[in-house]
C-alpha cells in the first residue's frame, strides 16, 4: 500500500519537472509541485516569480517546454480537452466579458465541456447554471448585462461560470485583483465555502495575510522556484518573508483568525 502510494503522487493534480517559458524567455526552469486533494492551496510570491505561469501550466493553457502535468496520475495532454475541462476549471486573471451578454448566458458558457454539437442544452445544464448562480449569490443578477455590474458582482459571476463547469478542481488566478477590500474578503469567503463543500482549490494571491488566513497549503515561490510549502502557520516566518520579498517584518498571530500576520518593520 505505502509503496504504491509513494511511487505515484497522492494528489489528483501534480506537476513534475516543469520547465515553463513564453517564447524563449524561461520563467520556471525546473519545478515540481503536488496539489493536495481537498485542500485550498494558495500560491504567493513577488511579481514575475512565475506563479501565474505555474497556474497556466497546471490548467494546460500553457504547454510546458519540459516535464509533465499529471491529472489523476496520467499526463494531462493524454486526455481530450473537454474531458480535462470537466475535472479542472480555471479562471484567468482578466477574463473578457463579451459585449452584450447577460449573466445567465455567461455562466451557461461554463457548460461547454459537458455539451455536444447537437446536444447543446439539457436539464443538467439548467441545474448546473442555477446551482452556480445560487452558490455565488448572483441569482438576482441572472438577467442583467455583465457590462452593468460592479467589480465585485462581476467577479462573483465569473466564479459562477467556472462553478457551472462542475469540476472538482478550481484554479483561480488572482481572483481578488481590482476589488476593494470588502469585496476581496467576499470572494475569499466564497472560495473558502467552496473548499469546505469539498472542492480542491488553487489560487494565486498577492496578499500574504489573506493567503495565510485562507490557505490550508501555502506555496511560496521566488524566481521560478518553490521556496517553501505547507501549512501557513509553519511556513510563514519573518526570515522567509525577508528572503523572498526582501521585506523586513515581524510575524504576529492574526488577532481574529490566529493565523500568521505579516507586519512590515518601520525602516530605521
Amino acid at each position: 500500500m505505502e509503496a504504491s502510494a509513494a511511487s505515484k503522487p497522492a494528489g489528483r493534480l501534480a506537476g513534475l519537472g516543469l520547465r515553463l517559458a513564453y517564447d524563449r524567455r524561461v520563467v520556471v526552469p525546473d519545478l515540481s509541485v503536488e496539489i493536495p486533494d481537498g485542500g485550498f492551496t494558495i500560491i504567493v510570491g513577488p511579481n514575475a516569480c512565475g506563479k501565474s505561469t505555474l497556474l497556466k501550466a497546471l490548467s494546460r493553457t500553457l504547454k510546458p517546454e519540459a516535464g509533465t502535468v499529471l491529472l489523476e496520475g496520467a499526463p494531462i495532454d493524454s486526455y481530450r480537452s473537454k474531458a480535462v475541462a470537466r475535472q479542472l476549471a480555471m479562471l484567468p486573471q482578466s477574463p473578457i466579458a463579451p459585449e452584450s451578454i447577460t449573466v445567465r448566458d455567461l455562466v451557461a458558457r461554463g457548460r461547454y465541456p459537458h455539451q455536444g454539437l447537437l446536444r447543446q442544452w439539457s436539464a443538467a445544464d439548467e441545474r448546473a447554471v442555477t446551482g452556480a448562480l445560487e452558490s455565488t449569490a448572483s441569482m438576482e443578477l441572472a438577467d442583467r448585462y455583465v457590462a452593468e455590474l460592479s467589480g465585485g458582482q462581476r467577479q462573483r459571476v465569473w466564479i459562477a461560470m467556472v462553478l457551472a463547469q462542475q469540476a472538482d478542481l478550481l484554479l483561480l488566478d488572482e481572483p481578488t485583483t481590482f476589488l476593494d477590500i470588502a469585496h476581496q474578503y467576499e470572494v475569499l469567503e466564497l472560495c473558502s465555502r467552496l473548499h469546505a463543500e469539498g472542492r480542491t482549490l488553487v489560487a494565486v494571491l498577492h496578499d500574504l495575510n489573506q493567503a495565510a488566513r485562507y490557505a490550508t497549503n501555502l506555496v511560496v515561490m521566488k524566481e521560478g522556484r518553490i521556496v517553501a510549502e505547507g501549512d501557513p502557520r509553519e511556513v510563514l516566518t519573518a526570515a522567509l518573508v525577508e528572503e523572498v520579498f526582501g521585506l523586513p517584518c515581524v510575524i504576529i498571530p492574526d488577532p481574529e483568525a490566529g493565523t500568521p500576520l505579516v507586519v512590515p518593520k518601520v525602516p530605521a
Partner: peptide, 15 residues
C-alpha cells in the same frame, strides 16, 4: 463564442 472571453478562458473550457 468561448474565445470572446479570451483564448486562455476558451482553452480552459476545453475549446
Amino acid at each position: 463564442q468561448l474565445m470572446e472571453m479570451g483564448d486562455e478562458q476558451a482553452d480552459a473550457l476545453g475549446a
